[in-house]
Computed example of a mutant assay.
Amino acid sequence: MTETVISSRDNPLFKRLKKLADSARARREARMTLLDGEHLLTAYLDAGGQPHTLVRAASLDAGRFERLAGQCPHAKAVELSDALFAELAPVATPTGLLAEAAWLAPPAIEATPLVIVLEDIQDPGNLGSMLRTGAAAGATLAVLSKGCHDPWSPKALRGGQGAQFVLPLVSGVDIVDWLAGFEGESLALALAEDGNLYAHALTGALALIVGNEGAGLSQAVCAAASAAIRIPMPGRIESLNAAAALAVAVFEAARQRAT
């Protein structure tokens, strides 16, 4: 394996990687992203992807990197100084490994629709966690509003832990228009509603809608949904965060479908 050593910020490849790390527009135009760490790279390979470039920090064990590079025969291998690598890493304590990779388009899942619909989720970790939860519960599609964070950002990918590689998703969607064309029941998870999640049949074609971390769902989306339902909370807390609410709802749907 031959590595290219990059020591300057003016290097064209480093500039390209930096744009992918920092810019949603650059990722969207190239349909490329950066995968951070061995786990994400392995999940990407398991899903049938092959990275374009493998990048290691100089401090990463060369033997470990060479073993990973052996699974990516067409990837260009690059070594960066730890300081340059830290400029690309999405976390304060870098893993030492990045991969430049094309977006994957998972095939449609042939099952009764179980769609997670996310309106204006701003935090990349929350968004990734929601996609991971949906994928784990057997969701067939994720629909993201125009106001959602970029699902292919390095931080959202870390939160998703491979969900973006296996769960079909569409982003930049007008949720009200999408709901109008959905041939199934759409349930908005909201506070102070009479409908009880656990008393509702969730076995048919279903879309579960969750809103922004602070503002919740917009009035327009709530009005476009078939119904609004609440998660009963017997404790002395008035609400769940968006990721937890989605987890409760989508796994209740999974439980009902299994039984």
Rank of each mutant, 00 (worst) to 15 (best):
G195N: 11
A180T: 15
Q219K: 14
A258Q: 13
Q50A: 07
A207I: 06
M233S: 08
M130G: 03
G181H: 12
H149N: 13
A102L: 13
T133Q: 06
V115T: 10
E66Y: 08
V248N: 01
P90R: 05
L189Y: 07
A101V: 00
P106G: 09
P90N: 14
Y44G: 00
P106N: 10
P168I: 03
G128R: 06
F14L: 13
E185R: 11
S153F: 00
H74V: 11
S145Q: 10
R9E: 15
K18R: 15
T4Y: 11
P124Q: 12
G138M: 07
G195F: 14
P154W: 02
E252L: 06
G160P: 02
A101S: 09
V173E: 13
H39F: 15
K18F: 15
E193L: 05
C72R: 04
L17W: 03
I6C: 04
W178Q: 13
L191Q: 12
A253S: 10
D61L: 02
L141R: 08
E29Q: 10
A21R: 02
S59Y: 03
P154I: 01
D46H: 05
R27I: 13
A139F: 04
E238Q: 11
S129W: 10
R16G: 15
L54N: 00
C148I: 11
I116M: 07
I121L: 07
E213C: 04
R25P: 06
L167K: 02
P90M: 07
A188M: 07
L88I: 11
L197C: 12
C148A: 12
A111E: 13
A26T: 12
G159M: 03
G63I: 09
A21H: 03
